[in-house]
Amino acid sequence: MARSLARRRLLLTGAALGAGTAVGPLGPAARAAAAASGRWPDRFPLPAGFRPEGIAVGPGPYAWFGSLGGGSLYRVSLATGRGTIVPTGTDAMSVGLKTDRHGRAFIAGGTSRQLRVVDTRSGRILATYEVGAASTMVNDVVLTPGAAWFTDSTHAQVYGLPLGPRGELPPARDVVTLRLTGEWAEAPDDGFTSNGIAPTPDGRALLVVNVFQDGGSLLRVDPRTGDARRVDLGTTRLPDGDGVLLLGRTLYVVQQKQNAVDVLHLDAGGRRGGAVRRITDPRFRIPTTVAAYGDRLYLPNARFDVDPTPSTEYDAVAVPR
């Protein structure tokens, strides 16, 4: 019964999925931050050998980075570019991550098969949930008012972590495994398929990048049933689609190996959209994910084109939104 009630609570939040993500006109504080960002660094180093993948911004002008090389996080002041390592007590990788107003980081644990929640102030792991099968790769995460949703890059499913009215974390038995059906196509033999995830602008569904299907597609997923339908993006394809960020009706899609961010405009339901522009920058070195603060986008350079070593240099860059 507890599981049924938790699932019902998670699914009923579907109508408000986008409330925590869509961003309206900048308020006074955000405008001040945007003005200040003109004096803030637009590039800052990350620790040598860190192997960044995910990024989250906030609360406040701080960025958090996860590492493919271990569970530690890296916290950076966007105002100064200076940062510090936050150990979390695990060596399991941290791929996609998002932070919430409670000072928590929700982390996709990659091949560890973990959904982790970490106290960003202390690095203490608040909860760990193990999901999927032996070949599972938990890749990315999006926070909504009632849940955290995680993609599984090697299986046709997403995982839902229902949150209580005050953000309370659920017991392990209440984690939802939502099978993707409908028009969803999965790469054979547990091949790499899904990547970034975001809500639709109206908050009623989820948008999931599928790098395998039809040369790279975006699919709209019903969070109640798992039914997936292709989003009509015209001729736009997302073969290297990685992290995504929804701001209003604008969806930013990082095309990592192309060293580019494709900017799409979607309808309210997330059923169709079109390319607005492409952001490129000579400082891009295979960026993977994107977060926003003020009038800037921030991206970590994963440098997947080089063999990682303890001395490999990494950085993050900012570009105008």
Rank of each mutant, 00 (worst) to 15 (best):
A2N: 13
R9T: 06
A15W: 15
A16Q: 14
G18F: 02
G27M: 10
G27T: 07
A32Q: 15
A34K: 04
A34D: 11
A36Y: 09
G49P: 07
F50Q: 08
P52S: 06
E53F: 02
G54K: 01
G54D: 06
I55D: 04
V57S: 08
G66F: 04
G69M: 06
G70N: 08
G71W: 01
S72W: 00
S72A: 15
S77N: 08
L78E: 02
T80I: 08
G81H: 13
T84Y: 06
G89V: 09
A92Q: 15
V95F: 00
R101A: 09
I107Q: 03
G110N: 00
L115K: 13
V117A: 02
V117P: 00
R124C: 13
Y129M: 11
E130M: 14
A133T: 12
A133I: 08
S135A: 14
M137F: 15
V142H: 05
T144E: 04
A148Q: 10
A148N: 14
W149V: 06
W149M: 03
T151W: 05
A156F: 00
G160M: 10
L163E: 05
G167L: 13
L169S: 02
A172T: 03
V175R: 06
L178I: 05
L180F: 02
T181W: 08
E183G: 08
W184V: 01
P188E: 15
G196T: 01
P199W: 08
P199F: 11
T200S: 13
N210P: 09
F212Q: 06
Q213G: 06
S217K: 07
L218M: 09
V221T: 03
R224H: 05
D227G: 03
A228S: 11
T235E: 15
G241F: 00
V254G: 01
Q258G: 03
Q258R: 14
V263K: 09
V263P: 04
G270Q: 04
R271P: 00
R271T: 15
I279G: 10
D281L: 09
R285A: 15
I286E: 10
T288E: 00
T288W: 00
T289E: 05
Y293Q: 04
R296H: 13
A302W: 01
A302P: 01
A302D: 03
D307H: 11
P308R: 14
T309V: 11
T309C: 12
P310H: 04
S311G: 10
E313S: 15
D315W: 06
V319S: 05
V319L: 09
P320E: 11
R321M: 03
R321C: 01
